[in-house]
């Protein structure tokens, strides 16, 4: 890192959690409204990009939970697992099942699509975040 921008660095500390929260919100509203795992994941990658611009590639790498490859693997795992309950219910792979949870003030629908979306979120976040960080790392090596 050559020039560090103090304002950006301080702002990133506040903005990063905010952007991650926005990413999760986009993920959760995704099934019936615009949003979902892919878009949520992209928002999360934007948060990583912000960190890497403000504090360098190393800090950005640390900001990806579990490390990028592991997060990607877990994401694929979640998405694939979401198809498995259907097999036990004697339906084709990836047939989605829903459960209604009454929470008093609202009805929460939880189903395998949410699991699938969460998996996509993790894949996008892990894979693209990891690639982004490695591109920036190449760039930083080049300019010592």
């Amino acid at each position: 890192m050559k020039g560090r921008i103090l304002v950006l660095e301080v702002a990133a500390r506040f903005l990063h959690p905010l952007m991650m929260a926005a990413a999760v919100w986009v993920l959760l509203r995704g099934h019936d409204l615009p949003g979902g795992g892919f878009i949520g994941g992209l928002v999360a990658v934007c948060a990583t990009a912000l960190v890497s611009v403000a504090r360098g590639a190393e800090a950005a790498r640390a900001s990806i939970p579990l490390g990028a490859p592991r997060l990607t693997a877990i994401g694929v795992g979640l998405a694939a697992t979401s198809g498995l309950p259907a097999l036990f219910a004697d339906a084709p792979f990836l047939t989605h099942l829903w459960v209604e949870l009454p929470l008093g003030f609202t009805q929460l629908s939880i189903g395998t699509p949410l699991l699938f979306d969460a998996g996509v979120f993790a894949v996008v976040f892990g894979a693209l975040g990891g690639l982004l960080v490695s591109i920036l790392a190449i760039d930083e090596e080049e300019a010592p």
Binding site: L128, L131, I135, I138
Partner: peptide
């Protein structure tokens, strides 16, 4: 994904 990969590759 392909674009990301190929950019890293060329860099």
């Amino acid at each position: 994904a392909l674009t990301c990969f190929s950019l890293v590759l060329v860099l």
